[in-house]
Design a protein around this nucleic acid. Structure first.
Length: 363
DNA sequence: CCTCGTAAACGATCGTCACC
DNA sequence: GGTGACGATCGTTTACGAGG
């Protein structure tokens, strides 16, 4: 498979691993293939960060809590402002500079849907055949939506549209609104893909290998496979001549996944077979201070579980937590926010650039 | 009561694997 | 090669509980 095969080539899963790899390679190829020092975080955001459709702002927290009037709206505004200037653009033009991977994959998806449309339609017709003439609802029918549009546009419509036209309109609206849901899988595994590519390209080194979603027992020095157990995959693993770094990469965190950190770690410890220490690193774009704080503080056997806790850009955190209102009065910070910023000051919570650089410097 | 922070459940999608 | 069950990811939604 060539990296830049045209989209016309049959793409089965537009958001799947194969197409993601093709697209990410294309992204970096367009930019010379290498990453300037200090630019790693920017590529992560350009590829993956998106605009929340309901607020028009760069996404840094749950949508419901970021609505105008809610607490995180102020912080989202501050974040949006910061990202725009950090990426050398304006708040107005920021959207054009983000979400590259999703937009490209969505384009491929649209082509895929178009390619399959006729085939799907004939199958559907066959499925409906036994019920023909019995007055079954048409798929995708949405009288309420149609009524809403008619009510709002009524006097502006020069002629009544046919049912087929309404059906197509409803279908297109539905597709438009559904598109954003498809981001979920992309942000999950796509984050791992992008981090791996960034790690490979920022400080190229033939003695260092970067693995994505590799089975734990296939990594050097983690050979003590527990028989019968389901094998564990490591989000991203970096293997250096004298150090192994196991990375858990989560764009954001929820309680159920926080618990996984601990079981994953104990799996890693049990599988370790070289009797050598390894690093356990958490890379995230989480903005919730309580979740970040817990990641920094978590102890196992009285020492920190994570060797490093890495945020895409800690300046973004600082800007977001330091949000100020129109009068310039800084919003009062919660205890957890202050703690997180202390962790940043102390170097416990570090930015992606700093971490990559430290990886390149230490053997 | 209301607000805020946290936690659990849910929905959409992809990858894997067993099976035909 | 296609299919269906299952487990994984995420963001969102709903539920809960502690305080003012």
């Amino acid at each position: 498979m060539t990296d830049n095969a045209p989209e016309a080539e049959s793409i089965k899963a537009a958001f799947g691993a194969t197409n993601r790899a093709r697209l990410i390679n294309a992204y970096f190829a367009e930019r010379g293939g290498t990453i300037a020092p200090g630019e790693a975080w920017a590529h992560v955001y350009r590829l993956l960060l998106w605009i929340d459709q309901t607020t028009g702002l760069a996404h840094c927290y749950e949508s419901d809590k970021s609505q105008p009037g809610k607490r995180w709206y102020l912080r989202s505004l501050a974040f949006h402002d910061w990202v725009a200037s950090a990426l050398n653009t304006t708040p107005e033009k920021l959207a054009e500079n983000l979400d590259w991977l999703f937009l490209r994959a969505a384009k491929d998806l649209a082509a895929e849907v178009l390619r399959n449309a006729a085939k799907i339609a004939t199958v559907a017709q066959r499925q409906r055949a036994p019920y023909e003439g019995k007055g079954f609802p048409q798929p995708g029918e949405d009288p309420e939506l149609v009524a809403l549009i008619k009510r709002e546009l009524g006097t502006h419509l020069v002629a009544e549209a046919s049912p087929e036209v309404w059906a197509r309109l409803v279908q297109q609206i539905r597709q438009y609104l559904a598109l954003d849901n498809k981001r979920k899988n992309l942000v999950g595994e796509g984050f791992e893909d992008v981090l791996a590519q960034v790690a490979r390209r920022a400080y190229p080194n033939p003695n260092v290998s970067v693995h994505v979603r590799k089975i734990l027992h296939e990594l050097p020095g983690f050979n003590r496979a527990k028989k019968g157990e389901k094998p564990n995959k490591v989000d991203v693993a970096i293997v250096k001549p004298d150090r192994r770094i196991l990375i858990t990469a989560k764009w954001s965190v929820r309680a159920d996944r926080e618990k996984q950190f601990i079981t994953d770690y104990s799996d890693y410890v049990q599988a370790e077979s070289d009797n050598q220490p390894f690093d356990y690193v958490f890379i995230t774009n989480e903005f919730d201070p309580a979740r970040l704080m817990r990641a920094c503080e978590k102890l196992v056997s009285n020492s920190p579980m994570f060797t490093h806790v890495v945020h895409i850009n800690t300046d973004g955190l600082r800007a977001t937590y330091g949000a100020a209102d129109a009068a310039g009065a800084a919003e009062e910070q919660s205890d957890s926010m202050r703690k997180v910023l202390e962790f940043v000051d102390k170097g416990r919570l570090i930015g992606l650039n700093a971490w990559l650089q430290s990886m390149a410097e230490t053997p």
